[in-house]
């Protein structure tokens, strides 16, 4: 009973959040609203509720998930995770979910014509671990040793391949490291098309419209959601048991948005609690302010903070002054 009440209250809360969102959008849709954020930056409204041209809008609270993908019990599943709880969804002619009633992010899906090419590339580069059917099952070997790629959506595939993490340098590594990508972006798209053809899923590869991004909101949201692992200067740091939060200094806008929506590796999926506008703000803050920090006042210490500063202060400051005293004093 209590649990049921809890579920109902969750549903009401989500619906309420959506309603507040729509209301706030209507109220705050003025040009100045871009900068108007409350202390807690609860809801930042930066655009009106509009679907991109050529798409149809569905108003389907409370979930921003296509009805076809929602299970009977209406819970988040593998195939529909990574979507914001938006009350507005925009579908393109092919029936793909491409936006959530805003122009901050356009989710794109690779063309079906790429599937044959994608399959070839998949078999060459990925099948040795993920299995010939992309289900993580090898002909010989332990099932489940490598991830099942089914129902992961193009954003996931695009993220892992374009950051160079896949194909992995060492498949036994606990966490695949970023490296120069082995496959090109179009090859990554082709593989994404092939995986999508096995089982359609969201989200698509996000195309982020950073033009209207609000860096101020991005900074606050970054401090609240990302800094606890990636550090406030985005340099990344070690986590428990050989895992680590990678540096964000080289990430592209698309990769930042993908990571937030799909949660690669240890990273949580940021779906329900961040709107597309907020993801856009964070992605812009990461690629503009963190990757290119305002390092006025001399040589930046690479975001290492007081460790590097203390070293410089002792080695250069105290060290040079000790040499000076050695110079002016008697030395025996």
């Amino acid at each position: 009973m209590v649990r049921m009440l809890g579920n109902i209250s969750k549903l009401v809360a989500r619906a309420g959040l959506g309603a507040v969102g729509v209301g706030a959008l209507a109220l705050l849709a003025t040009p100045f609203a871009a900068g108007a954020t409350t202390l807690h930056h609860s809801i930042a409204a930066t655009s009106t509720v509009k679907c991109p041209a050529g798409t149809t809008a569905t108003y389907d609270p409370p979930y921003g998930v296509p009805a076809s993908l929602i299970g009977e019990d209406a819970t988040t599943k593998r195939k529909n995770s990574g979507t914001p709880y938006s009350s507005v969804q925009c579908y393109n002619a092919a029936g793909k979910l491409v936006a959530y009633g805003n122009n901050a992010i356009l989710y794109t899906y690779p063309s079906e014509n790429l599937v044959p090419l994608g399959e070839k590339l998949y078999q060459q580069n990925c099948a040795s671990c993920h299995g010939v059917n992309a289900d993580g099952v090898l002909p010989k070997g332990t099932s489940g040793a490598f991830p099942d790629l089914g129902n992961l959506g193009p954003a996931t595939i695009n993220f892992w391949i374009t950051t160079g993490r896949m194909p992995a340098a060492d498949p036994k590594e606990i966490q695949a490291s970023r490296k120069p990508p082995r496959l090109t972006d179009s090859q990554a798209n082709a593989i994404a098309a092939y995986i999508d053809s096995l089982g359609p899923a969201v989200p698509g590869t996000p195309e982020v419209n950073v033009k209207g991004a609000n860096l101020t909101s991005g900074q606050t949201l970054f401090a609240l959601n990302c800094a606890a692992c990636h550090t406030i200067t985005g340099g990344g740091d070690a986590l428990a048991s050989n895992t680590y939060a990678p540096s964000l200094h080289v990430a592209t806008v698309t990769q930042v948005a993908e990571a937030m929506r799909v949660g690669p590796g240890n990273m949580p999926v940021f779906s329900g609690n961040l709107t597309d506008q907020q993801v856009r703000d964070i992605a812009a803050y990461v690629t503009e302010s963190i990757a290119k920090p305002t390092d006025i006042g001399g040589v930046g210490m690479g975001g290492l903070g007081p460790v590097a500063e203390g070293f410089i202060g002792l080695a250069l400051g105290v060290g040079i002054l000790m040499l000076v005293s050695f110079w002016v004093g008697e030395r025996q």
Binding site: A227, A228, D237, G305, V307, G313
Partner: peptide, 9 residues
């Protein structure tokens, strides 16, 4: 909170 925060040396 930010990770990797240290005090002065």
């Amino acid at each position: 909170i930010s990770y990797a925060v240290q005090p002065d040396w």
